[in-house]
Design a protein around this nucleic acid. Structure first.
Lengths: 344, 344
DNA sequence: CTGAAAGCGCTTACAG
DNA sequence: CTGAAAGCGCTTACAG
């Protein structure tokens, strides 16, 4: 059992022959200390292997962290899950003197999102936003950052903005993953593949499509990708879209839904009663997609973990406020693949 | 922007008309307080929405947490990764006044592991152990727990023991997942399937085999599972095993390695140059398995995240020491599926 | 059964 | 440029 002796700031002060206030100045890089004194203190710190206690510092500073999470309105199951996860981490955050507010905005309206961001009190110590890649939104994010409010983008990125970081998955890779599974599950079958998205002006949906087409085209030449259908993540529009695809293409063998609205897709597939079943790959683990997987309607679900993403966003903002290092590996959001067998 | 006013213990003392020491007694359930006083304090706490500050409490208590992680010796890449991840969280732990030591033992020797556990200083505030499901080991774990040292099992469980919790994946489900992927990738092809493990007396390997056979037998009747080969996670033994399988079964179409030693499997597959390629599913994401995936030698890798597991074990032990709640969802270890396309 | 006082390791005015 | 003193929110002996 190893020893872990901790020397304190007082020990360093004594060793260096200065006061605690001076040691504090050196540790925190505050001004007005003679270079010679700085050196003395640094030496003492090194000799004693001093490691400051950030918890005590936080207490003395009475520091609090207020964060704001900006989420899209609506009943999308994934976003609801995300909201729940944010609420769930409240206790943990409170223990770290951190608090999060939530704001909801229409995700399909860049102007509304930009305004919401502009109206955010600059007293916030950090903002996490499910963004829209739009010049207006980008400008609003940059204004926040200019006002010294760190911003992380969540789920959907605005790469050109000055956000601290993007918390989400590589959506092109997610699309490629979907294509690989779908292609291999079809195993040589030839035919048409339908692709649905909420909107091609949503960066994440667009990137999934891109990755999907890219890989399918390269690896599975027997499969023909049909023109992408936008259905605004609406289950009725999705249902109609799938019905139309089935009607128009008798050789339809598979479906990839890069957006929400799986309820509609499932309804159309059920009504069609095609044999052999179409291969169907969807996104996000929800009560519904889980059911579809168990029922054998969906073959695979590509997912990201909203709990992980919420905590990661909070940790990043917190680490910024506390000036602490992060564990990079912990903040990498993975592309999850779920089959019926590895459902959590 | 919401307000988050915090009342302190002093506020509660004033409101209840008692001293801080008494409030402290009530908060922490210490004895020697009149029921009436307890009630007064409770009321005041409720009125002020008082929430104790665990960081300040930790400071005043000068509490430190010493944990010990007991890992298998050897050069197994996954275990090395686990060791690295444990080291990586040192900084974060230190900030929380926690420290971890590491002990290494031969994983194939129950007696050695039991002795190592018995010899662990009872001053530890928690132990995480990559266990062996053996009566000797179980008894040693139970002795630790009896001595008031909480234990979590890591990666491989001892379900009958009194361990606080198991940090790892559901290995039967992992085996089923492997079977599902392998079966679907074969897509109707008939033939023999080879299965390798390190040892059937390792609970995790055994459970993977079990899940694998169960699902393959049920869902893919065209595939014939060959008798399981034990190769002690040794690359040379693994290579020989695969060579033998290839020689003995001309209809071998797929391979599942539930253990380590993928290097040997890959070498044998390479030497055989069979067309069409065998479908090969392996476990754990390592430098090698990643390469095999990229090279198209392995079709899928079933994995667990050692960084997540190390942090989860530490969080569980820490939450025990601090008497704090955990976020259950965060401590669930997922069965990861990696294809070439979603490699991190 | 209860409280006054000192202290945990650091920071913050304030004085010089 | 530097230090003495008070304080962050809680706990710990000790006294009564």
């Amino acid at each position: 059992m190893e020893d872990h002796p901790q020397s304190t700031l007082v020990d360093v002060a004594r060793e260096a022959g200065v006061s605690r206030a001076t040691v504090d100045r050196v540790i925190n890089g505050r001004p007005n200390v003679k270079a010679k004194t700085v050196a003395k203190v640094r030496d003492a710190m090194a000799r004693l292997h001093y490691r400051p206690d950030p918890l005590a510092a936080g207490l003395a500073r009475r520091s609090r962290h207020r964060f704001c999470f900006v989420l899209p309105t609506g009943t999308n199951a994934f976003m609801q899950d995300l909201a729940t996860q944010i609420a769930t981490m409240g206790d943990w955050l409170a223990r770290n003197r951190a608090f999060v507010d939530r704001v909801e905005v229409d995700v399909f309206d860049p102007q509304a999102l930009a305004t919401a961001l502009d109206e955010l009190p600059r007293a916030y110590d950090g903002v996490a936003v499910v963004a829209l890649d739009d010049p207006l939104v980008r400008a609003s994010i940059d204004r926040l950052v200019a006002d010294d409010v760190p911003v992380v983008t969540l789920i959907s990125d605005v790469p050109a903005s000055r956000r601290l970081r993007f918390v989400g998955i590589d959506n092109s890779a997610a699309g490629r993953t979907a294509a690989m599974l779908l292609g291999r599950f079809l195993a040589g079958q030839k035919g048409a593949v339908g692709v649905l998205v909420g909107s091609l002006s949503l960066r994440d949906h667009m990137e999934r499509c891109f990755g999907f087409s890219q890989l399918l085209g390269r690896e599975f030449p027997g499969l023909r990708i049909l023109p992408v259908v936008e259905m605004r993540d609406d289950r009725d529009l999705a249902e109609t879209a799938v019905r139309d695809l089935l009607k128009a293409h008798s050789d339809l063998v598979a479906l990839y839904n890069a957006g929400a609205g799986n309820q509609g897709v499932a309804a159309a597939l059920k009504a069609a009663r095609k044999t052999p079943r179409l291969v169907f790959v969807a996104h996000e683990l929800t009560a519904l997609s889980r059911e579809l997987l168990l029922a054998g309607v969906a073959d695979a679900v590509i997912a990201q973990n909203p709990g992980h993403e919420a905590r990661s966003a909070a940790r990043l903002l917190l680490s910024r406020g506390l000036d602490e290092a992060i564990i990079a590996e912990q903040e990498r959001i993975r592309i999850d693949i779920f089959l019926r067998e590895n459902l959590p």
